[in-house]
Design a binder for these strands. Structure first.
Length: 151
DNA sequence: GCCAACGTTGGC
DNA sequence: GCCAACGTTGGC
């Protein structure tokens, strides 16, 4: 799951511990959010930063959450086509698990995985929520273990 | 800041 | 329903 650190980064999640992942306004990304279940783990990815990459881990603690921002008239995620009876945007509530000692850069992920193995590595991919194979996720977690801490 | 890739909008 | 124009994302 991607977020720009300037907007909401892993440090913000570590501080808040729990958050609703609101503001996703892409149908494909929303469908992936809808498929998530309580207990699922997700990587936190920093986009639009240098270098971009995976910075930590979080856990889904509530599924099928109606995104409240779609009803916020003054917010940037307001959707006039959404109604309380038929909301268009669902998301998840997540909890901070941990920040990696050092981030796993996109370049490293590209070195290690093909775009078939890891969708996030595919050039031109703009999806902010993407599925990941268990096997690949385990390898990434292993990579995180082996990272040397930054001071 | 540039720009390729992609999604959305809207005229027809 | 097609597709050109436009807006956005996000790596570099």
């Amino acid at each position: 799951m991607k977020s720009e650190p300037d907007v909401f980064g892993i440090a913000d999640l570590e501080r808040d511990r729990v958050t609703i992942w609101d503001g996703v306004r892409n149908y494909q990304a929303r469908n992936f959010l809808k498929s998530m279940e309580v207990g699922d783990l997700a990587f936190f990815y920093h986009s639009n930063t240098s270098p971009p990459g995976i910075v930590g881990l979080m856990q889904i603690i509530e599924a099928q959450v109606v995104d409240p921002s779609q009803f916020d008239l003054d917010g940037e995620y307001y959707d006039p086509k959404s109604t309380i009876i038929a909301p268009r945007w669902h998301t998840v509530k997540i909890e901070f698990v941990r920040t990696f000692n050092s981030q796993i850069a996109l370049a490293t992920l590209r070195d290690r995985f093909t775009s078939e193995e890891l969708l996030a590595v595919k050039q031109g991919n703009r999806l902010s929520v993407m599925p990941i194979l268990d096997r690949v996720a385990e390898q990434i977690l292993q990579m995180a273990e082996n990272l040397t801490p930054i001071n």
